[in-house]
Design a protein around this nucleic acid. Structure first.
Length: 275
DNA sequence: AGCCAGGGTCTGC
DNA sequence: GCAGACCATGGC
């Protein structure tokens, strides 16, 4: 990776492979909007940024060295070598095709609470509406950063609210789950530190103490919010794809990075015409 | 108009 | 353990 600080912007190149669009559009995050082709605006923590990719060059607008190092390099996990990972997991024909098709996807390092909350909202829902609910959640209860952009509200704030307070979100039956998650994390019943530091099975069990978090949402939270690259969220698409591609289960050499394999298969099954 | 959406809970075998 | 109804809401 090559990083150049030019004027007010930060320019990144030589991350191979990387597709900003595939990464932000693959259903792992819900707070990015595409302004124009390959140009996105989003919020991470209390930082707002416009990012554009043209060929191999990614521009982080109005971003100084310190912010890039502290926020964006970590968020996109630019130090992780995806070529090496693909070498390890894309050994058979199917994974080679899927990995080749979705090669620009990277797993983002997102905030744990934000992913927990977002994937509770995702259940029995579609990406467009998930984004709408998350936006209203931030607009209503987050702190302003700059005009039009708020932080994701923290769990202590949400824990003080009632179901009626959440009505403007129009999140339906999920509102009570959002509250339960915020309350249990806020009062220590569910310990995010413990989730981060225990084994995969224990971490999953801890998350599933929250009403509204089942097997799939727990795996999403672990993969996207706790950097557990071995987590393998199974939604309807993946189940369909697995039944056809790997009826006997995921190949052994995929398991260490099952979450990345999952992204390749998911993207391939959902958008490729040859699937 | 009616189906479905990156599911989970609750109930009944 | 496993199947099936039900859950709110909106996009298509």
């Amino acid at each position: 990776m090559k990083v150049i600080y030019k004027g007010r912007d930060t320019l990144v190149s030589g991350v191979s492979p990387f597709s900003l669009k595939q990464t932000l559009d693959c259903g792992q995050c819900f707070r990015w909007d595409e302004l124009e082709e390959n140009t996105f605006v989003g919020v991470v923590g209390n930082t707002v940024c416009k990012i554009q990719q043209i060929d191999g060059e990614v521009t982080f607008f109005d971003t100084d060295k310190q912010t890039f190092e502290k926020v964006w390099k970590n968020y996109f996990d630019f130090d992780l070598d995806y070529n090496k990972i693909r070498e390890e997991i894309c050994k058979d024909d199917i994974m080679k095709r899927a990995g080749n098709y979705a090669s620009g996807i990277r797993i983002l390092k997102q905030d744990a609470w934000e992913t927990i909350c977002s994937f509770i909202i995702s259940q029995n829902n579609n990406i467009k509406r998930i984004k709408g609910i998350v936006k209203r959640l931030c607009d209503t209860f987050g702190d302003p950063i700059i005009e039009g952009y708020n932080t994701f509200p923290d769990y202590n704030r949400i824990a003080k609210l009632s179901i009626e307070d959440l009505a403007p979100l129009r999140s339906g039956f999920r509102a009570k789950y959002i509250l339960d998650a915020a309350q249990k994390i806020s009062n220590g019943e569910v310990d995010l530190e413990r989730v981060a530091n225990s084994s995969y099975d224990d971490a999953k069990a801890e998350l599933m103490k929250i009403c509204g978090i089942g097997n799939k949402v727990a795996d999403c939270a672990l993969l996207y919010g706790f950097y557990r690259l071995e987590a393998f969220p199974e939604d309807v698409w993946i189940k369909r794809a697995m039944a056809r591609l790997y009826p006997d289960g995921l190949p052994e050499n995929c398991k260490r990075y099952a979450g990345i394999a999952q992204q390749y298969i998911f993207h391939y099954a959902r958008t490729s015409e040859e699937f």
